[in-house]
Design a protein around this nucleic acid. Structure first.
Length: 426
RNA sequence: GGAGAAAUACCCAAGUGGUGAAGGGGCUCCCCUGCUAAGGGAGUAGGGCGCGAAAGUGUCGCGAGGGUUCAAAUCCCUCUUUCUCCGCCA
């Protein structure tokens, strides 16, 4: 969430940058400032009264000891106590209202984020590799996998419903190999990440901390009955970032770099008909995530490193990709700046998102109360970053398509052969 | 899932309604001692929020949230976590 002080000092700029996301937040910004004014007014009043309360409460036992009558002063204090209680209640209401508004205002896009309405306006930053030229008609991955018997797209329908997949034989093994390859690569000397295996369920406080709640509850699977507070995670970003909720990270530990595999669960509400076939858009998919906690002055540097780490695994697999910078209309709710990595997908005849690397600045840290210390030793909000490193199902799709052969077989990229034990799926 | 116990600072820990939340360890500084050990003294409750240019100052903090009371670490309620035992289980 945004810093009220920052909003106060940069009101017009905030409004202007937020509006470039495609929706005006002028009303919310004005509400925030008004509620904060009201909050301060109540605090000034009630704390003066509490000081009086404290002072008199210390006198009462002395008076009693001296044998004086305290009935009158106690009656007076009772009245004061009631007024304090009322003002405290008012304050709770105002602060809850303020919090409610703060939680639905997205992060302000960083100055470097280009203005634009949607993904068509995302500038390309760089490309790696060349899209394969096939001398035959390439097939989409669902046909390749289906023909090889390693993907069973129709079976999940009766077990769960659409947008789920069974993998079979070397297909299942390929998914597992990719997870291991990603984790091993990120954890190696060059990657420098520590592996985490988190719970795949998180509570609402955690979901709020990273920005999924309160605004995007319709995108998540909630567990159990109405009184249950648990959700299936949409990304390992949620449990791993929230490891440090309400903590002060010692500065010697920074930057904290974690890589985590998890299954991810998304309802994909509003995505009806999009990417209906294949592994591109699933309700449950696997992902290896990179999560980073950085000192504020270091976070932009860490974003470049993190993005390069995500690119490294695609390079290792020989998959052509490009990096784009998300424009103001396409950037996610909590992010201040995002690079997307898009892998070449022959069946789409274009690049398809396979990783999203973002700097959240202190937006998540303020929500989740994640802090480090400044040069003077005072606590300050840390910066959080994360990126897919990368989406596993989409990697399977990309390998099947980019490494397909005319006879219907798929060559296994060099880097995965130690994990696969075979050099092709036939 | 059932029963019991617990939660106070970096650690241990006292504190059953009343003026500044004991004490010890550790840590920091100082004194003494040619070094070390031992000894002596002082400091050490974080953090949030408010006011203030600042120095400061006020307020809230005893697991969390409510309640009772003029006044709560202390009494009451709800919740969380940890420990022990039982049950169940990969």
């Amino acid at each position: 969430m945004l810093d009220v002080k920052m909003i106060r000092e940069n009101t017009e700029k905030c409004k202007k940058r937020l509006a470039l996301r495609g929706k005006s937040y002028d009303i919310e910004i004005d509400q925030i400032l008004a509620l904060d004014d009201k909050r301060k007014e109540i605090i000034a009043k009630v704390e003066g009264m509490k000081a009086q309360q404290n002072k008199v409460s210390k006198q009462i036992p002395q008076m009693k000891k001296a044998g004086e009558d305290t009935a009158a002063i106690m009656a007076e204090m009772k009245k004061l106590s009631e007024d304090v209680k009322q003002l405290d209640a008012d304050r709770t209401v105002v602060e809850a209202e303020l919090q409610d508004v703060l939680l639905i205002v997205p992060n302000v896009p960083a100055d470097e984020v280009p203005a634009g309405a949607d993904d068509a306006a995302n500038p390309e930053i760089r490309r790696w590799g060349e899209p394969v030229q096939f001398d035959f008609e390439p097939k989409p991955h669902w046909d390749i996998g289906g023909d090889l018997g390693v993907l069973l797209p129709d079976v999940a329908g009766k077990v769960t419903g659409s947008r789920f997949h069974f993998y079979r034989g070397l297909g299942a093994r390929l998914e597992r190999a990719i997870i291991s390859y990603f984790l091993d690569t990120h954890s190696d000397e060059q990657g420098g990440y520590t592996e985490i295996l988190p719970p795949f369920i998180a509570n609402s406080a955690s979901m709020t901390g990273t920005g999924q709640l309160p605004k995007f509850s319709e995108q998540m699977y909630q567990l159990g009955r109405e009184d249950n507070d648990l959700y299936l995670i949409p990304t390992a970003e949620v449990p791993v970032t929230n490891m440090y909720r309400d903590e002060i990270i010692s500065n010697e530990a920074l930057p904290v770099r974690y890589t985590a595999y998890s299954a991810c669960f998304r309802r994909e509400a509003g995505a009806a008909g999009r990417d209906a076939r294949g592994l591109i858009r699933q309700h449950q998919f696997n992902k290896v995530e990179l999560v980073n906690f950085a000192a504020p002055e270091d976070s932009w540097n860490q974003l470049e490193k993190l993005t390069n780490e995500a690119e490294r695994v695609l390079q290792g697999l020989g998959l052509p990709y490009r990096v784009v910078c998300l424009c103001t209309g396409d950037i996610g709710f909590s992010a201040a700046f995002t690079y997307d990595i898009e892998v070449w997908m022959p069946s789409y005849n274009r690049y398809v998102e396979i990783s999203s690397c973002s700097n959240f600045l202190d937006y998540q840290a303020r929500r989740a109360n994640i802090r480090c210390r400044d040069a003077a030793g005072k606590p300050q909000y840390a910066h959080t970053l994360n990126g897919s490193g990368v989406a596993v199902g989409r990697t399977v799709a990309a390998i099947l398509e980019n490494y397909q052969n005319v006879d219907g077989s798929v060559t296994i990229p060099e880097a995965l052969r130690p994990y696969m034990g075979v050099d092709a799926i036939k």
